[in-house]
Computed example of a mutant assay.
Amino acid sequence: MGFPAVRHRRLRQSVGIRGLVRETVLTVDDFIQPIFVASGTGVKNEISSMPGVYHFSLDTLEEEVKEIVELGIPAVLLFGIPESKDSIGSSAFAEEGIVQQATRKIKSLYPDLLVVADTCLCEFTDHGHCGMVHTYERDGHVCGDVLNDESLDLLVKTAVSQAKAGADIIAPSNMMDGFVQAIRAGLDEAGFSNIPIMSYSVKYASAFYGPFREAADSAPQFGDRKTYQMDPANVREALREAESDVQEGADMLMVKPALAFMDVLRMLRDQFDLPLVAYNVSGEYSMVKAAAQMGWINERAIVTEMLLGMKRAGADIIITYFAKDAARWLREGK
């Protein structure tokens, strides 16, 4: 049976009908809002490449968190900008590290707000890489190799320190081989067997991270991250990475970035039944903001379509710098 008996437009005739048959729905419970916490006092500085996103010091953090809670956003993802850095990123796992202090403050103010701690070293190392490095000179240039196994011990220390500070979820983003297994064992040994791991399972060496590196002051001082983050040309490799994390004890899987890798989101959704996270990254955010400021696009419509696309591709959770905006739009839509 076909046309004229079948008329697909019948189900598009009104707002009510379209809402009734809508397949994919965004809710505020889908979102995690990233926050950048910096050392110092009185800090609320807008990040130049990310309009509307700020560095907050501990004393200005409460206002931001209050707004997030009032909007109904269930979780925040914490990134820290420390006062000082060294070769092993020791402030990443210090008891009084900036992420640890921010976690304790947020949990004291809003115990029910979920705190997700990004577990990496790049913001805390003076070389900007996500692990320990062996440096050497070649043709007058500083070069280095990122040491996988030696880095695992530091990442475990970081995860345990974040859990001790009150983090609800540990989110390791370093892409070292075996990081989920090491962190799971370390958390369990320290008495945190109930703390879930949201693994950055599939993290590409992407050009979309540029604004984040300004925000987190985490650009590599030499080389790049292509020896540990994935080649954007590869998709079967993503399946191997995710499968390893599942076997090692990950509780949630992430694809980062999201927008250029919808096929990877769909593949993981089809292969695994763990909660799936899409990271709507800084470059994706900044492109939309820049075009909106020029009047070239309808920001609300574009962002809504992007986030719907991520959910339609299979994401259960979306980390996005648009979380507050999207939460307002959803509330206005009601």
Rank of each mutant, 00 (worst) to 15 (best):
M1R: 12
F3H: 15
P4K: 10
A5W: 04
V6K: 13
V6C: 01
R10P: 01
R10H: 09
R10W: 02
S14I: 00
V15R: 10
R18T: 06
G19K: 05
T27W: 00
V28Y: 12
I32N: 06
Q33F: 02
F36E: 00
A38W: 12
G42F: 13
I47L: 05
P51I: 04
G52C: 06
Y54R: 03
H55W: 15
F56S: 14
E62R: 12
V69Q: 10
G72R: 06
G72V: 06
P74G: 01
L78A: 05
F79L: 02
E83G: 11
K85P: 13
S87K: 07
S90G: 10
S91A: 10
F93A: 13
E96G: 03
G97Y: 09
I98C: 09
I106D: 12
I106K: 01
K107M: 11
K107E: 09
L109S: 13
L109W: 15
D112E: 13
L113P: 11
L113M: 12
V116S: 03
A117Q: 01
D118R: 02
D118H: 06
D118F: 01
L121C: 00
C122T: 03
E123S: 07
E123A: 10
E123P: 05
F124H: 14
T125A: 08
H129P: 03
H129G: 02
H134R: 13
T135N: 00
E137Y: 13
D139M: 08
G140T: 10
G140R: 11
H141W: 05
V146W: 02
D149L: 07
L152D: 13
A159I: 04
S161V: 00
S161P: 00
K164T: 07
G166I: 01
D168I: 02
D168M: 03
G178V: 03
V180D: 00
D188T: 14
E189W: 01
E189I: 02
A190I: 04
A190K: 07
G191Y: 01
I195Q: 09
P196Q: 02
V202M: 06
Y204H: 06
S206T: 14
A219E: 04
D224I: 04
K226N: 13
Q229V: 05
M230I: 08
N234E: 12
E237Q: 15
A238Q: 01
A242S: 08
S244W: 08
Q247D: 02
Q247V: 06
A250G: 09
D251L: 00
L253T: 02
L259N: 08
F261A: 09
L265Q: 06
M267P: 07
Q271D: 11
Q271S: 15
Q271T: 15
Q271V: 08
Q271A: 15
L274H: 11
Y279Q: 05
S286F: 10
M294Q: 10
W296C: 06
N298S: 13
I302H: 05
E305S: 11
R312T: 06
G314A: 11
T320E: 04
Y321T: 12
F322D: 14
K324D: 07
A326W: 01
R328Y: 04
R328G: 01
E332R: 10
